Simulated assay, not measured.
Amino acid sequence: MDDVELVMPVLGVEIDEGQMRTWVKSEGDAVTMGEVIAIISTPKLDMELECPATGVLKTILVDEDEMAAVGETLAIIETDEDDDAPA
């Protein structure tokens, strides 16, 4: 199993942080690549954050209403994929 980091995306020019508005999923929930996992807010907009991998939302590192810098890890997703395993 591999861990994939969910990071705060680039939110726009001159915006270097965003607020974690809402987690749509909770720790331990199954998640699918491309589904909305959280809502992030900036002074100008709210943005849906899509899950970067399929697996389980293992650990939330930034709680709702907390600020996070662009590039900061927001959560860890544990995937079922193991690239080193024989096919």
Rank of each mutant, 00 (worst) to 15 (best):
I77H: 08
D16A: 11
K44P: 03
G71H: 06
D3G: 03
E17V: 02
D46G: 00
P43V: 12
A75P: 03
D16E: 15
E17S: 09
D3A: 01
G55M: 11
D16I: 12
A85T: 12
G55V: 10
E81Y: 09
A75M: 10
Q19A: 04
V31F: 13
R21Y: 08
M20Y: 06
E48M: 04
V24Y: 04
L57F: 02
M8Y: 12
D65Y: 00
I37L: 15
Q19H: 00
D2K: 15
E27P: 09
M20D: 01
G71K: 07
D16T: 14
V10H: 14
D46W: 00
E50N: 11
A75S: 07
A75E: 07
I37R: 02
D46Y: 03
E27V: 11
L61M: 12
D46P: 05
E50H: 13
T54P: 07
S26Y: 02
D80F: 10
E66Y: 00
V13E: 15
D65H: 00
S26Q: 12
D80S: 14
P43N: 14
C51L: 12
K25S: 00
A69H: 03
A38N: 04
S26A: 08
L61E: 07
E14V: 06
D84N: 13
M1V: 09
V31S: 12
T79Q: 08
D80L: 05
V70F: 08
E5D: 13
D2F: 10
L6N: 02
V24M: 05
V70Y: 12
E5Y: 05
T73M: 01
A53G: 09
A38M: 10
D46F: 01
I60G: 06
V10D: 15
L11T: 10
D63R: 14
A69F: 00
E14A: 15
P52S: 08
M8G: 10
L49H: 09
V56K: 11
G28I: 03
E27L: 05
G12M: 10
A68I: 04
C51K: 06
V10W: 07
D63T: 02
G55T: 14
M1D: 02
T42Y: 12
K25H: 02
I15M: 07
E14W: 05
G34S: 06
M33L: 14
C51D: 14
D82N: 15
G55D: 13
I76N: 03
G28C: 05
V56L: 00
S26N: 07
